[in-house]
Amino acid sequence: MVKDGNNSAAHFLPDRLDLESLRAAAACCEGCDLYRNATRTVFGEGPGRAAYMLVGEQPGDQEDRQGHPFVGPAGRILDKGLAEAGIEREDVYVTNAVKHFSWVPRGKRRVHQKPTAGQITACLPWLEAELAAVEPRVVVVLGATAARALLGPAFKVTRQRGEPVPLGDRLAVATIHPSAVLRAPDRDAAYAGFLADLKVAAGTA
């Protein structure tokens, strides 16, 4: 048993590991405690074979309500960056390291809460299955939570961002999460760095 009440999503994986079967099975996942307060599982979306897989942290408030990844403000930053980096949206599969929204109430608002290490570990079987099904050439790792899931706790986005690193038989390029651009004191500088990293990923594929 993983710490803080988490077990593993592995028990919920279907026999067939294609995206359609995975998405249907993930809708019933109770592999960690986050399902209790989330509206729904927010699974990855995109083509069955994609040159790029983009992995974020977790669904946000709008993603949880709508059931689709990267549809909130951070998603608009991501779409802008992809377009300017020359990455076609139809070549991209987007997902998150954690498939349920982790939040705490603040008045009437639901405020994002960083997933725990146990929750990240519990959800990893879904992400590994998505990687195996999609077979991307390049994985763009968006932020520290995704980096922990895919590249290990020793990997530091602040130090190693924008550098292609091996991830199995493919390459990964880490950058900040697009939501970090929105929170940055200097948004223009933060976005410029984010875009530079996406351009590295575009050149890697």
Rank of each mutant, 00 (worst) to 15 (best):
residue 85 A to I: 10
residue 64 D to Y: 00
residue 99 K to D: 01
residue 64 D to H: 01
residue 72 G to A: 05
residue 102 S to C: 14
residue 73 P to I: 07
residue 61 D to P: 00
residue 89 R to S: 14
residue 65 R to Y: 01
residue 98 V to A: 03
residue 68 H to S: 04
residue 61 D to L: 10
residue 82 L to Y: 06
residue 88 E to A: 15
residue 76 R to M: 11
residue 80 K to D: 13
residue 58 Q to C: 08
residue 103 W to Q: 07
residue 77 I to V: 15
residue 54 L to E: 06
residue 104 V to W: 09
residue 80 K to S: 10
residue 88 E to V: 10
residue 85 A to L: 13
residue 98 V to S: 01
residue 57 E to H: 06
residue 62 Q to I: 04
residue 53 M to A: 08
residue 60 G to T: 05
residue 78 L to V: 07
residue 86 G to P: 12
residue 95 T to L: 09
residue 65 R to M: 06
residue 89 R to C: 01
residue 78 L to F: 11
residue 67 G to P: 03
residue 104 V to M: 14
residue 83 A to E: 15
residue 83 A to D: 14
residue 78 L to R: 07
residue 79 D to G: 07
residue 82 L to H: 06
residue 105 P to S: 14
residue 99 K to T: 14
residue 82 L to A: 03
residue 64 D to I: 00
residue 55 V to C: 08
residue 76 R to Q: 13
residue 91 D to L: 11
residue 87 I to F: 12
residue 55 V to W: 13
residue 103 W to P: 00
residue 81 G to L: 11
residue 86 G to V: 12
residue 91 D to W: 05
residue 104 V to H: 12
residue 70 F to D: 02
residue 82 L to V: 03
residue 78 L to W: 07
residue 69 P to A: 02
residue 72 G to K: 04
residue 77 I to A: 02
residue 96 N to W: 06
residue 100 H to M: 09
residue 61 D to N: 06
residue 60 G to R: 06
residue 92 V to D: 03
residue 100 H to F: 15
residue 71 V to L: 02
residue 56 G to I: 09
residue 83 A to K: 15
residue 68 H to P: 00
residue 66 Q to C: 05
residue 93 Y to F: 15
residue 66 Q to R: 13
residue 57 E to D: 13
residue 75 G to C: 02
residue 97 A to E: 13
residue 77 I to Y: 02
residue 54 L to S: 10
residue 76 R to N: 05
